Simulated scan of single mutants.
Amino acid sequence: MRILGLITARGGSKGVPKKNIKLLNGKPLLAYTVEAANRSKLITDLILSTDDDAIIQVAENIGLQVPFKRPEELAVDSASSIDVVSHALQFFESKGIFYDAICLLQPTSPFRKDSFIDEAIEKFINQKTDCLLSVLQVPHEYNPHWTFLENENGTLDIATGEKEIIKRRQDLPVSFFRDGSIYITKTTVIKERHSFYGESISYIESDPQYFCNIDTLKDWEIAEAKVLQLRIK
């Protein structure tokens, strides 16, 4: 299976200015994801999609291919990730290069175990689903069976639509949330549905100690502590 590893990093970060190339323990944030992807034996090609010249320079300095510069309209806050991925596919297909799937890797989730990407790809291939997500378990207090939505009357309904709440924590079904580390999707799903999700979704559980999703300065402080805790070089 031909898989395009796609790292996305736009230049207009507001929560943490220039976060994709900001130094984390002496290394650009982008580099952590690049190094993890380079350890993969199953990614066919690895590229960066960005609109920013400074990010391009850093990427090229660490050996990451940047075959195009992302159009400005795909670098604004309102631009969606699926549009960015579709643009990359269209670029390659215009040159007669085709992939069976995209493996989207976000620099804002910088920490991954050495074998994690290939474990995810292998599971995606073996289960033959439309997509695969990396996930973590939802803490029981946030389980959808214990959360509520406001209805049109201004009162609350159980989020799952049930009439009776599950009383015991032990009886709650396990639920998951996307941790942002890996998205793998068939090219056909991206093109036909304009979505990362198809009719079948497989998953791989991340190691909770590696979880970090950088969006704010507080998140950056957590990442600074975690990189020392995990002894990631």
Results as ranks from 00 to 15, higher is better:
L4T: 04
L4H: 07
G5P: 07
L6Y: 05
I7C: 01
T8G: 09
R10V: 11
R10C: 07
S13P: 00
K14T: 03
V16H: 10
N20E: 13
K22E: 11
K27A: 01
Y32G: 00
E35I: 01
A36K: 11
S40G: 07
L46Y: 06
L46R: 05
D51N: 15
D51A: 11
I56V: 15
I56G: 08
Q57E: 14
V58S: 10
V58A: 14
V58C: 14
I62R: 02
V66I: 10
K69A: 07
L74P: 09
D77C: 06
V84R: 04
V85Q: 08
A88F: 08
Q90M: 12
Q90H: 11
Q90K: 11
F92H: 12
E93S: 14
S94H: 04
S94Y: 06
S94W: 04
A101G: 12
A101F: 03
Q106V: 11
K113P: 00
K113M: 10
D114S: 13
A120V: 07
I121Y: 02
E122G: 01
K128V: 09
T129N: 09
D130H: 12
L132K: 10
S134I: 02
V135D: 03
V138D: 02
V138W: 03
V138A: 05
E141H: 01
Y142M: 12
P144E: 09
T147I: 03
N153W: 03
G154Q: 04
D157G: 06
D157Y: 00
K163P: 00
I166T: 10
Q170L: 13
D171E: 09
S181F: 03
I182Q: 06
I184L: 07
T185S: 15
K186D: 06
K186W: 06
V189M: 06
I190C: 04
E192Q: 13
S202C: 11
I204Y: 04
S206N: 15
Y210P: 06
F211G: 03
C212Y: 05
E221W: 04
I222T: 12
A223N: 08
A223P: 12
E224F: 04
E224R: 02
E224N: 04
L228R: 11
Q229Y: 14
R231I: 01
